[in-house]
Amino acid sequence: MEKTVNHKAWFLVLPVLVLVAFSAVIPLMTVVNYSVQDSFGNNQFFWVGIEWFQEILTSERIHNALGRQLMFSAIILAIEIPLGVFIALNMPKRGIWASVCLVLMALPLLIPWNVVGTIWQVFGRVDIGLLGHTLAAMGIDYNYTQDAFDAWVTVIVMDVWHWTSLVALLAYAGLQSIPEAYYQAAKIDQASRWAVFRYIELPKMQGVLLIAILLRFMDSFMIYTEPFVVTGGGPGNATTFLSIDLVKMALGQFDLGPAAAFSIMYFLVILLISWVFYTVMTNLDKREGA
């Protein structure tokens, strides 16, 4: 059913347009502006074309950072998604314990990023940290400031601790939306536990899991604060992910031009992947609604 057409309504959108222009479009254009120019200070700029983009695309340093970044995102997705689903499947469905679980699960999500970093930074220290000290006492050679592998493990465990709840909560919401009749039908059909998961729970969670994967991918791909607080990107460049590298480049070295080009490509990569996800999801919806 269509409505009466009244174009005056567009004026109501105007404030939002102005706001978006100031908060997103204008800063973005500044970055675009920087990415095609060079400066030697004194606010003097000159045109360099796509030189910075070429430099970034061929830079080994950026390639390595990108490789680490992809590796990091892949690992945390591979751990957090199945783990989150597993937790959701084992949470109580109703009653007081369901609420208690929900609150407990939500707790890590409420802690600010840099606090999470700090917690784990202290927690893992060999001298005073509970974890580091215990591991050392058990004779395990663990030191995230010296050993690249240990640093990776720490950062990944920290992210899993911080964000698996999100996946679990989303999956839990998906599971809660399955009508009781499905489980009863499965009982009557004598379906195995695995079949219930494979043919009822997983298909019904599909939508929320895609959202979870999308959110966790984007977020992990842009991760900055926590590894910066814990490892500062080290040891060496072992945990220098894209955004850490970007900040180093922009603020550490004040290479504004390359940093701007870097930002734009970073942004485009995330946009591209999000778009792919979005398309896949809407196609699924269409099939569902057909």
Binding site: P179, A181, Y182, Q184, A185, K187, I188, Q190, Y199, I200, L202, P203, K204
Partner: peptide, 21 residues
């Protein structure tokens, strides 16, 4: 006896189908 042991079939108010099958 639980539902599984009663050897019955049931059709519900809303269609219960295995979507991916």
């Amino acid at each position: 006896a639980p539902t599984t042991a009663r050897n019955i079939a049931q059709v519900f108010q809303f269609p219960v189908v295995y979507d991916t099958m």
